[in-house]
């Protein structure tokens, strides 16, 4: 028996370990799903009780805090030609009100 492993054995083993780790993420996701989904249901229940309409992800301006309720002139809040000055607005596309009607 060879004392040294063949390069193909080593490299394919590393690949198999990486594949196993990737598959393990699926198992991990399945195991954590129930508890995390319960927390999400609680968030949804709070949103329902408080009649919330938006995520509190970007709190810097009213039209990033509540994009669903921002006025039609977002992101030209200050005057019609004013460009947006908050970084999070670079992450958000303009609201597609022209696609409003299904």
């Amino acid at each position: 028996m060879n004392k040294h492993l063949r390069l193909s054995t080593t490299s394919l083993s590393v690949l198999a370990v990486a594949l196993a780790a990737a598959l393990a993420t699926l198992v991990d996701a399945a195991l954590r799903f129930d508890s995390e989904a319960l927390a999400r249901r609680n968030r949804a229940a709070l949103a329902e009780t408080l009649q919330l309409s938006d995520l509190s992800l970007f709190t810097e301006a009213r039209y990033t805090r509540h994009p669903a309720l921002a006025d039609l002139h977002s992101a030209f809040q200050d005057h019609p030609a004013a460009l947006d000055h908050f970084p999070s607005a670079a992450w958000m596309p303009p609201t597609r009100w022209h696609e409003k009607q299904p």
Binding site: E36, A37, R40, S56, E60, S88
Partner: peptide, 27 residues
Amino acid sequence: FYFSGALFEPALKGWAILYPRFRLVPE
């Protein structure tokens, strides 16, 4: 799913001071 996308936090946070701590459902 374990570090809540910590590397994106400075970008998402922007000028905001308040940024939520959250754990996403792993889907």
